[in-house]
Design a protein around this nucleic acid. Sequence first.
DNA 1: CTGGGGATGGGGCCC
DNA 2: CGGGCCCCATCCCCA
Length: 583
Amino acid sequence: MELPNHAKQLLLQLNQQRAKGFLCDVIIVVENALFRAHKNILAASSIYFKSLVLHDNLINLDTEMVNPSVFRQVLDFIYTGKLLSSSDHSNEQNFSALLTAASYLQLHDLAALCRKKLKRSSGKPLPGKPSTPGPLSRLRLNNQRLSSSTPAGPNNHYPPAPSDADQPQPDEGLRDKLSDDELFVGSSGKVGNGGHGSSNGNLSSGASAGEPDLGLDLSKKSPHSAGTATDALSPHSNSQESPQSASVSTTNSASLDDSSTTLPGADTCISETMELNSASKTSEETPNQTDGPPPHKKTRQAARKNEWPKREASGLKSEEHDRPLVNGVIVGPKDGRSSGICGGSGSCFASDQSFHCKDEDDGGENGQDHSDESGQSDGESAGGGGGHHSVNYVYRQEGFEPAFGDNLYVCIPCGKGFPSSEQLNAHVETHTEDELYIKEEGGAFVKEEDDEEAEDLSAPVGPSGFGSESRPFKCTVCSKSYKDPATLRQHEKSHWLTRPFPCNICGKMFTQRGTMTRHMRSHLGLKPFACEECGMRFTRQYRLTEHMRVHSGEKPYECQLCGGKFTQQRNLISHLRMHTSPS
DNA sequence: CTGGGGATGGGGCCC
DNA sequence: CGGGCCCCATCCCCA
């Protein structure tokens, strides 16, 4: 017994989920466009992807081989089995580009379709697509070019082709395309795996010599060990050790700098649809490399460390997943509890970029999806009551159209929607920083509750609590005072309604650049601070210091009421609440 | 099952 | 801009 449309329906659902960013667990960066997708889907469609997504949540593709608009078609193909090609005259070019991309990504079925199409349309020999070494040869060319551009160090590791040359090895393409500044793709699952955690550090990113240009230096010199994704961004990470995977992404993630978020042009017109007949063909071969090795160090800590930063993961899950991805751009995090990374405060629009957010799940556009995603919100909806409004910089105001309306690109500050990223960008530039200042009441935006609370809570101990004698610089809004004008200025930003520093990955905005870069590190899994005892890594030095007490047994924080000792101050505080709050 | 403690992640913010 | 610290939230373990 078999359901006739089962596979189709399933794919349809998955594609819908992708459109909304629901449960998407990987971000693919192509030039300056970000695409969200599901690892499983990618892995099932290509060995290359399989090796990439194994250890990374962020994949950066070689822009020599694929551009945003082509990748969009590729992704559509992966999720639908249909090839939607543009109808314009550049059709042939488009197929050629698609073929290149498909070869690079080892999407054999798509490559075959393209070849067929090209053959049919021009009868000419196909560009770079000799059947056998086809993609590889092309990749090699690319590779050569790339490597030549980098210092030819001893690091030009290009492992010799695998013995079983003919078999498309999972990593083969990668290897071919590896250059010093790119990462390796893990060839065998073995190596890499371990990665994350601690020990192996792996996630190599290979960024060896050529440091990727990061708009933001997300790397922090790691005082300790090496090789993890974290190090990837640091100039001296030793790439050689980790021929592994994913790091790729991380490394490149670097490219997620401020400028990287432009939207890929939306390729529209679709004139023909080629469908993949033998959809069944998957790249399942090479099972070996897939299974991620079990986390080696099974300490709880180590376990926690794998994958996305845990929090992050949950953040994505509960909050971001519904952010739709439109034209390669992540559209807004949904809102949720304040805690989450990006989602938390749903804001997402950067004044200088094209992110646009979608708040909650647009209440509506897709009723049906809601049911699917009901799970999605559990976390947050439970707590935040779906309240988009608890957030600052609410993305979708009452009167706003659902994000999926005609004007997908919405300017957070003023709420105007635009049909294209270009228009939105042009519009955004009309906002000056001054406008970002709070207009207090009457503003379309609501001041963030959390901030208020935080302020209140901290008030007693905050600066204002101290004698303001030595603090001549007073905030006109809340009357807190500071020792120097710079700090006052910094503080005043907390009163802004709009935050000038957006995360290029999730769109969340921050008042301080440092906070934003710190946040970005969490997206990228950059944890420069490693514990020498257990290998656990942290994003902040302070956390490491805190963590070290776990090993030393030091418990410097003592409860004055019961004498209980704690390794962390926050736990003491938490403990004190037990004493104070009767419940 | 529940509450407390340990440990960790993320954001805000001051220095 | 980085370091530090505070707060919140959460997960896991254990009694």
